[in-house]
């Protein structure tokens, strides 16, 4: 039992550190956001009474964000959040984060989604855009061999286009 605990401990400490730093940053951002919401709400037009004004509910919500943000910051400070922010934002840590395979993978996947949505859709036919997107994904993820990737991406795009236009009568972007 003790051995397991000892082995798990460094990961747990890493997680605690990460949580403390993340909570401190999120709490601070929430306070700033709450102030912005409340300030904007106060500047909204009052038609008859302030109680029915468009800004009344956002004002309350802004105050709620400030309170919740303050609670998070207070909790993170108790967990030595400031010190952890320094550890988390240390140059070596940031470099290893940026080089982490998970981070790179997500950035590439999001990049491919963005190219599909903003670069291909609307410029070429949705079916062709889908085939290209799927093929690029299958290749990057090493899902299957290249020729199988071509077949699957073309067939999947064709099925999607036919199903939505013929069967469900739904317009494609």
């Amino acid at each position: 039992m003790d051995d397991t605990k000892k082995e798990a401990a460094p990961e747990e400490v890493k997680e605690v550190r990460k949580n403390g730093a993340a909570d401190l940053i999120m709490g601070a951002l929430l306070i700033i956001f709450g102030i912005y919401v409340a300030y904007t709400a106060l500047n909204m037009r009052v038609y008859t009474t302030f109680l029915s004004a468009p800004g009344f509910f956002p004002l309350i919500l802004g105050v709620v964000f400030i309170i919740l943000g303050a609670m998070m910051v207070a909790s993170a400070i108790k967990r030595k959040g400031f010190a952890q922010v320094k550890v988390v934002f240390a140059k070596s840590n940031l470099i290893s984060f940026v080089k982490h395979h998970e981070f790179i993978r997500v950035i590439i996947l999001v990049g491919m989604m963005a190219i599909f949505i903003f670069g291909l859709i609307g410029r070429i036919h949705f079916g062709i855009a889908t085939s290209i997107y799927l093929f690029a994904n299958f290749m990057y993820l090493k899902s299957t061999s290249w020729w199988k990737a071509i077949i699957i991406s073309v067939v999947a795009a064709l099925m999607i286009v036919l199903a939505f236009t013929r069967f469900f009568n739904i317009p494609l972007p």
Binding site: L141, F164, I170, P173
Partner: peptide
Amino acid sequence: KREILMPIIVPLTVIGAYAGNVRGFDIT
């Protein structure tokens, strides 16, 4: 493989988001 299934979800989400109001902003 999930590596085959999950990318196929993305075009479906695009159509799902677009179909309601037929406006590109909803995809964004």
